[in-house]
Nucleic acid binder design. Structure first.
Length: 477
RNA sequence: GGCCCGUUCGUCUAGGGGUUAGGACGCCGCCCUCUCAAGGCGGUAACACGAGUUCGAUUCUCGUACGGGCUACCA
């Protein structure tokens, strides 16, 4: 027994940008393929002419590309497969598993409204399901427009979902639904089946919102005589209100996560933990580790609420673990000219010092400005607190003198020099440390002061300290 | 309304007939310390409800409640 190859797909419709839910569906498909040595395909479901937009196709592809969820060729567009759908519809018309329905949309709408007013439970009337051939011909010749509906057979439709287990539905619950509209175009449930079959998809992994579509699609597989794939439905990603996450909840577009400086790996790591667990307590994963550990049976059934705080934490952990060069490459990937004037070696030092202090690439960029140019802004609260009066100027002057005479410019020596100065002046080291930090960085916080001074270099430090003597204290007295 | 699915700390989750119900984020406190992070230690907080099965249910069964999805000539 040799197993059929594993082929999965992600099939977004280009009616909006790629959002968190779509990205997770894509990720789980990709992981499933990677883990099992299968292939991952992409299919653009652009049959809704009204809502589909080419720019969204571009955005979705761009986001997937950024996430690094590489798909195999060919990339399929449903809009280019009209021929295949037509053939399949004819096949079903010929083999009698479908019928032409001459009910008009208006008729149906009215009947539906009436039924709903009376308490719901509207069923599509099977008026034309079994009319004689002559009558059909007559209507056709009269130019009556029609839709093609699937004849739902009696019985039960059941399937085994890899995540939800056995699911069954009585066929009576399913209407003779439309597979081809009156303009001849196929509907969603139909195109999905035709495409999944022709693409040789072995496992359909998609959102839980498709569970109720599955029996319908299974019935189409049956009518077409195609073998059905296996199914796995993923729980929804929810907003804080427990409703399916959407634009209303804020940052749902992948592009926004990229814009706020999250790395693709961190986002993927967060996403994989949303609704899945490895069965161990590990929760920080590299891409390779995700592939190695992924097991679809460990996917949750319950919808998961998106929590930005946790994403932020994971992003910080990824940053702390990343090499300085990886971080630099990631930043330059977004902003090619970032700090081009500085030497890579110097930037690496800066990043080494700062990477555990930021969670996102943007935070890192924002907090490292003073490593590359003299600070122009000085935190006024810190100035008020740490540099109250002229007495501080005296201390700084003394420290500058020592620094100028420093033989070695290394953290330990700068430290010793500062403590010696403090001792001379009979003050605590802190009385000097804080104002020096303010003078040199404009900030009240940052890396260890002496590592900072060492990295900035003698000239820069002395320049900034001198300058600060002309600025502080802020209050004149 | 009908059908399908779900329900363990605020959130993500582990567990599973007998556990002090475990971990993570967040929050709080302490330690480290020149600050901020990071890190370490500790704390806070959960089995929706009701029956049944059982010596014993958070765990199994059935109901109820609540939540979600679907119910289109959208995908």
């Amino acid at each position: 027994m040799n197993k059929p190859p594993i082929r999965v797909r992600f099939a977004p419709s280009p009616t909006g940008q790629l959002h968190l839910g779509g990205a997770r569906t894509a990720l789980f498909n990709w992981l499933y393929a990677q883990h099992h040595g299968g292939e991952f395909f992409l299919r653009i479901e652009d049959t809704d002419r009204e809502r589909s937009k080419e720019e969204y196709t571009g955005q979705i592809i761009g986001s997937l590309d950024w996430l690094g969820l590489q798909w195999s060729e060919p990339l399929l567009f449903q809009s280019e497969r009209t021929g295949a759908y037509k053939n399949a519809i004819h096949k079903l018309l010929d083999n009698g598993s479908t019928y032409r329905c001459f009910l008009t949309r208006d008729e149906l709408d009215r009947a539906r409204e009436k039924a709903q007013a009376k308490g719901g439970d509207f069923r599509v009337p099977k008026t034309y399901r079994d009319i004689p051939l002559q009558e059909q011909k007559r209507l056709l010749n009269a130019g009556q427009s029609f839709t093609v509906r699937l004849k739902i057979p009696p019985g039960k439709t059941l399937f085994k979902d890899h995540i939800y287990g056995d699911i069954s539905v009585n066929n009576e619950e399913i209407d003779d639904f439309i597979i081809a509209r009156s303009d001849g175009t196929p509907t969603y449930n139909f195109t999905v089946v035709v495409d999944d079959y022709t693409m040789g998809i072995s496992h359909v992994i998609r959102g839980e919102d498709h569970i109720s579509n599955t029996p319908k699609q299974l019935l189409i597989y049956e009518a077409l005589g195609y073998p059905a794939p296996e199914f796995a439905h993923l729980p929804m990603i929810l907003g804080p209100d427990k409703k399916r996450l959407s634009k209303r909840h804020g940052a749902a577009g992948i592009q926004e996560f990229r814009d706020t400086g999250y790395s693709a790996d961190a986002l993927l790591n967060y996403l994989v933990m949303l609704g899945w667990n490895p069965g161990t307590e590990k929760e920080l994963f590299t891409r390779e580790e995700m592939v190695a550990h992924f097991d679809i049976r460990k996917v949750q059934k319950k919808g998961a609420v998106y929590d930005e705080k946790k994403l932020h934490w994971i992003a910080g952990q990824h940053l702390a673990r990343a090499s300085e060069d990886e971080i630099l490459q990631a930043i330059r990937g977004e902003e090619p000219n970032w700090q081009r004037h500085a030497k890579d070696e110097y930037i690496h030092h800066v990043l080494k010092l700062m990477k555990i202090r930021g969670k996102t690439l943007n935070e890192l960029k924002d907090m490292t400005g003073y490593f590359f140019s003299d600070p122009l802004k000085f935190d006024p609260n810190t100035a008020a607190k740490r540099w109250k009066d002229k007495s501080v100027n005296k201390l700084i002057e003394k420290y500058i003198q020592r620094l100028e005479n420093a033989a070695k410019w290394a953290a330990a020596d700068l430290d010793a020099a500062l403590r010696a100065t403090a001792e001379d002046m009979a003050v605590s080291a802190a009385k000097l440390i804080h104002p020096v930090r303010l003078a040199v960085s404009g900030q009240s916080q940052g890396p260890g002061l002496f590592e900072l001074l060492e990295l900035l270099g003698k000239m820069t430090c002395i320049r900034r300290l001198r300058k600060s003597l002309t600025i502080f204290p802020l209050t004149n007295d």
